[in-house]
Design a protein around this nucleic acid. Structure first.
Lengths: 347, 347
DNA sequence: GTGAAAGCGCTAACAG
DNA sequence: CTGTTAGCGCTTTCAC
């Protein structure tokens, strides 16, 4: 009562006064500098606690030239945001790592050219972000180039088209797809189709490359009617499968689990059985993969760690000022469930 | 060449010098103040463009006391983040609205008590966020109370336990659940079960309340064995259904689509048919609802608009300083598909 | 319509 | 170990 309820914005100076020390000392306490006598530190902390004082973030950033904030830029179609669980997984991994390293996460969803025009100047503002994480994707490339020219630390999640001088982290998509398709071929399927992601995307390209390589290695000619393009949405998988059906594939490698789910829906609607008439292998191994009946055989990629590792690299760039671009490749693993028919074919 | 490649951090002062005006004038141009002669404005803009100058965000925030940043705080279990598409939908709606209003979005995922301890001081820092949006949820309540005491504008997404003095936006969960369950009862189902959300959550409570009310209104006694609690994950729906099965329900109202999906998986595994043996109604109507076979009858709630409206309210609070707490209730709609068996029962 | 000057609240040398 | 002193880069009265 007597001490008043004036929660009004306190400053370092106010705290200093109340604690009977100078502003610098309070600053030292807050920033955990060693050079403060223990009892003084306690006294200051006491005042801070009792006043519920929180330092002003803007002032701190301005003076120290560090914002402790990193931006996650996700250039993706709006509908892919909705249906592809890849996005929340990645975000979760990134958020977790940010928390761990004491950074705040700024989220920038780019769904259109207009969004991009609004967001680029925002992330480029100096004194705003200590580092930027950008996911590759259809709308992202121009953005990456523009950002790479600025001096702000940058890490790309996924292989960029132009990797010169930039740090990035990726999974070995080509190898993973190669393994997945080889698995289908070994099981004896003759007409292995694929549903790819958007062609203007390195992830899609790499996975398709793996598909092509697996076929080529067995001297199988490419049948264009067995290739259909999707955009990482459930609906696109569904429609891609409808286009594929007339070519009578007996197995499908889908470039993502969610597209596999859509494709399986189309197959069921056509009155065909999975895996007996059409077998499936997906990509991602998100929880989603085990929901459908039969459960999806798929390539497991560590989406979560992918996100947190990307943050780890970025933090290195920021804090240790590591010079040359860093490259990290993560491994995948084929998870065999029922949709590929492995159990029946073997028995 | 001659003009030098010195992209080094330019300041307002530098721009002013190059344009032959004062710092204030450049500031006016940047902030679109009217009182600048047209030709001067052009000259300044020219310099800004040619130097790729971006104002320093921290300095601007410090001087103007506005950060143009809002925080979205999502207190949820980690696994719910993963499997429940509700999260990306909400985030998308919020991000879109932020972009529209020229705010930057800070994302704070709280998955544990420790996260909460780290994040509360962060969002409480003055000069950091202009406003905060918090989703209700198990971990969120203490947080809401602590945040409500600060002077920073706050909007809750969902009805908080203690709504005194806070602004919030919600859907009429009770009414929506009541309608969903009534629909099942009207179709003639005798043993209507429900899978609820976590009990420490107003959303779950309200939806269960609707279920109870629909039963009570038809003088049906509550059978506790027909009520199972989940946590908004697919897996929890699956296990809840397994617990429900011995009680032989002929219909289930699930408090979210993703739990309905899990429950349907359990029903199929038990060798029962949907909707013939067990009918289903879900809640959300995210795209997910139309993926399963049969497609899910569900309560449609406008998750996207929910997010953007919440931002709209928050921006009002911030910019117009609206005093009394605002309350907004959004309407829902029952979307009838195949999982409830409406088509067969009627014919 | 434009410029000068006083901060915004903090960090970080530099003395002592 | 602690205090003094400059700024960090911008906004915003207040004169002119």
């Amino acid at each position: 009562m007597i001490q008043g309820d004036q929660l009004a914005d306190l400053t370092l100076e106010d705290i200093a006064q109340k604690a009977g020390v100078s502003r610098s000392t309070v600053s030292r306490v807050i920033n955990e500098h060693p050079n403060v006598r223990a009892d003084v530190r306690q006294r200051v902390l006491q005042v801070i606690r009792s006043t519920d004082y929180h330092p002003n973030a803007a002032a701190r950033t301005l003076a120290s030239q560090r914002s402790w904030m990193i931006g996650l830029v996700l250039p993706r179609s709006v509908s892919a945001f909705f249906t592809d669980p890849y996005f929340p997984h990645l975000t979760q991994g990134v958020a977790q790592a940010c928390n761990q390293y004491n950074y705040t996460l700024g989220l920038f969803l780019i769904g259109s050219k207009e969004d991009e025009e609004k967001i680029i100047p925002r992330v480029s503002r100096r004194g705003f972000l200590d580092g930027i994480l950008v996911q590759t994707g259809q709308l992202g490339e121009q953005l990456i180039d523009r950002l790479a020219n600025s001096k702000i630390p940058l890490v790309i999640a996924g292989r960029p088209f132009n990797p010169d001088g930039v740090s990035y982290i990726d999974v070995d998509n080509t190898d993973a797809a190669y393994n997945a398709v080889s698995h289908l071929i070994r099981l004896g399927y003759q007409r292995v189709a694929t549903i790819t992601g958007p062609a203007n995307n390195t992830t899609s390209i790499d996975r398709k490359e793996g598909y092509l390589r697996a076929l080529a290695e067995r001297d199988r000619p490419l049948d264009e009617s067995l290739v259909a393009e999707g955009d990482f949405t459930e609906a696109s998988g569904y429609y891609a499968m409808q286009r594929l059906l007339p070519a009578k594939p007996d197995a499908v490698f889908a470039a993502s689990d969610i597209m596999a789910v859509g494709a399986m829906r189309a197959v069921r609607e056509a009155g065909l059985a999975i895996p007996d008439d059409v077998a499936f292998v997906g990509f991602d191994d998100l929880p989603l993969a085990s929901f459908p009946d039969p459960a999806l055989t798929t390539v497991r990629q560590p989406v979560n760690q992918f996100g947190s590792s990307a943050v780890g690299i970025l933090v290195d760039l920021i804090e240790k000022g590591i010079r040359p671009p860093r490259r990290v490749m993560m491994v995948t693993e084929l998870v065999i469930r029922d949709s590929c028919g492995a159990s029946r074919r073997r028995s």
